[in-house]
Amino acid sequence: MVSPRKFTIENNGKAITGIFNDEIGVRCTIQDKSCNVKRKNTTIARFLKFRFPIPSSPSTITKMKGVDWYLCLDTGGVLTLKHHSVIDRSDYILAEMKSQSEFCLAPDVKTNLTVSFNNDEPIL
């Protein structure tokens, strides 16, 4: 059985968090690597050095009202944080992302992705 992993994305002093069952090995791939991207887009953060095969089984997560951000694999299998307004049918949604404060992607600021090995902390 695959245990859930906590993923945190930080941008401009704000953090957003999500949990999903890591059946594709995201944690193992990311754990020892630096995960910073800088972009101008305010609705998408693509972590280009992290590509994964899109699972053949459909995602158990669907776009829901009230959820602004999702961690997903885009059509190229790139690990991506997307605002709900740019989620595409071909995106494989991994997790709903939540924040205690209003999260947004600030342009020209580094966006950091981290994986927590200890899931004892509460989800925001």
Rank of each mutant, 00 (worst) to 15 (best):
residue 54 I to S: 08
residue 14 K to Q: 15
residue 46 R to C: 06
residue 50 F to K: 07
residue 33 K to Q: 14
residue 114 T to R: 02
residue 51 R to L: 14
residue 113 L to E: 03
residue 113 L to W: 11
residue 110 K to V: 00
residue 9 I to P: 02
residue 25 G to N: 01
residue 24 I to T: 09
residue 30 I to V: 15
residue 59 S to Q: 13
residue 46 R to A: 12
residue 12 N to V: 08
residue 55 P to Q: 05
residue 22 D to L: 06
residue 10 E to S: 15
residue 28 C to P: 00
residue 99 S to D: 05
residue 67 V to C: 06
residue 40 K to I: 09
residue 73 L to S: 00
residue 32 D to R: 05
residue 12 N to C: 14
residue 92 Y to D: 10
residue 36 N to S: 06
residue 27 R to N: 00
residue 62 T to M: 07
residue 37 V to F: 13
residue 82 K to H: 02
residue 112 N to R: 10
residue 98 K to R: 15
residue 86 V to T: 07
residue 57 S to Q: 08
residue 69 W to V: 01
residue 87 I to H: 01
residue 102 E to A: 14
residue 61 I to F: 11
residue 63 K to I: 13
residue 106 A to T: 09
residue 64 M to A: 12
residue 58 P to L: 15
residue 38 K to W: 05
residue 97 M to V: 07
residue 30 I to W: 00
residue 69 W to A: 05
residue 58 P to S: 15
residue 73 L to M: 12
residue 60 T to F: 14
residue 48 L to T: 13
residue 79 L to C: 14
residue 47 F to G: 03
residue 53 P to E: 14
residue 58 P to M: 14
residue 85 S to L: 06
residue 56 S to C: 13
residue 52 F to I: 10
residue 113 L to V: 00
residue 16 I to A: 01
residue 101 S to M: 11
residue 63 K to F: 11
residue 69 W to T: 02
residue 98 K to I: 06
residue 13 G to V: 13
residue 106 A to D: 11
residue 84 H to E: 07
residue 31 Q to Y: 01
residue 21 N to T: 04
residue 106 A to Y: 08
residue 74 D to R: 02
residue 112 N to S: 13
residue 9 I to D: 04
residue 17 T to S: 07
residue 90 S to P: 04
residue 94 L to S: 04
residue 113 L to R: 07
residue 57 S to I: 10
residue 37 V to C: 00
residue 32 D to T: 03
residue 74 D to N: 15
residue 82 K to Y: 04
residue 26 V to A: 05
residue 45 A to T: 10
